[in-house]
Design a binder for these strands. Structure first.
Length: 317
DNA sequence: ACGGAACGCCTGTTAACTCT
DNA sequence: AGAGTTAACAGGCGTTCCGT
């Protein structure tokens, strides 16, 4: 299809309905499932999809007996469809905010680092100021949250910022530098040792983040820099609940962002091992879609995040 | 234990029809 | 004309059954 014809098609034939359908089909990977969610029957949706594809002259989804799989064209159309829908939701929120005062919804993706420090603080401030705003927090890893951010499902992602491989279509704002500390249960025999380095800890049991994470690589680099072999006795877990209990009930050594550990340390539930890890300090901040303006509720939360970041206590290691 | 046939389930499409 | 429905049908995959 020529671009002129395509533009005319968008003006005359493309309905918001089509955009909605393609987005739903993309998410559910099945005509039947999408039809159920949209309260339509399967043949209707099948036909609607055929209409869109016929007019575009492009196949958006390959049909299989296991459902749909998006083609390269489908990937592009669905990505834009979701952004258009998110934008319209934000428009509705903004209108509603104006009508009733403060309201709207913010959806935040969070990685471990920000969860314990600035996010609860910022949410508390936001809710105090704007009780009508709904805040939805999604916890996940970088790999899971970034596609959601790009697709318009999340307003922002908080956490440790990647230092390489940053995307041009995203904005990165650093809030503070997060040191990493080694933690154990209080009363751990190692805490009585006067001089302690990574080389003394190689044979201990370690509780480490998963191998594909940046933090894990940094820890392993720290061992290399200390001329020490990487520990062999390792438990891999990203479950903060599991980790906290495990640390308290065993003698293993954990690796935690300082501000995640801080609350437990202040309550005497964990202790910091006096080992210097000077090379492990990474920026914590927010990732946003660029350029697009944040909807009002999300913009408000973002401002409170900036304020909360200023109050983050500096590390005493 | 292995391999093939039969079957049901799930997914999709087309055709004919109704309603607005 | 457009959007929806029901009915009938086609095809792939996994499971079950049965013979070797």
């Amino acid at each position: 299809m020529s671009s002129a014809r395509l533009e005319r098609w968008i003006e005359r034939k493309l309905r918001l309905r089509h955009v909605e359908l393609v987005a739903e089909l993309y998410d559910s990977r099945s005509i039947l499932k999408a039809a159920r969610r949209l309260n339509l029957t399967q043949p209707t949706l099948s036909k609607a999809l055929q209409d869109v594809e016929a007019t575009l002259g492009l196949t958006l989804f390959e049909r299989t007996n296991r459902g749909l799989s998006p083609t390269a064209y489908g990937e592009i159309f669905a990505r834009h469809a979701k952004i258009v829908l998110a934008q319209l939701r934000h428009a509705a929120e903004e209108l509603e905010s104006l009508r009733v005062g403060y309201s709207g919804k913010v959806t935040v993706g969070t990685l471990l680092a920000a969860s314990a420090s600035i996010l609860p603080d910022a949410i508390a401030r936001l809710k105090k100021e704007r009780p009508g705003v709904t805040v939805s927090v999604v916890v996940g890893t970088y790999d899971i949250l970034m596609p959601s951010l790009l697709a318009g499902d999340l307003d922002m992602v908080l956490g440790r910022l990647p230092e390489e491989g940053r995307k041009r279509e995203l904005l990165y704002e650093e809030f503070y530098a997060e040191p990493i500390c080694l933690v154990t249960r209080p009363g751990h025999p190692l805490l009585r040792r006067r001089r302690l380095g990574l080389r003394d800890l190689v044979n201990e049991a370690w509780l480490l983040p998963l191998p594909e994470t940046a933090l894990r690589r940094q820890v392993e680099r720290a061992f290399l820099e200390a001329n020490a072999p990487v520990p062999r006795n390792v438990i891999e877990s990203v479950s903060i609940l599991t980790n906290r209990v495990l640390l308290r009930k065993s003698d293993c050594i954990g690796v935690m962002p300082y501000h995640v550990a801080l609350d437990d340390i202040e309550h005497g539930l964990l202790s910091i091992l006096p080992v210097k890890l000077k090379s492990i300090e990474t920026p914590v901040g927010a990732i946003l879609r660029a350029p697009g303006e944040l909807p009002p509720a999300a913009a408000a939360l973002f401002e409170y995040l900036r304020l909360a970041a200023k109050d983050v206590p500096s590390a005493r290691l």
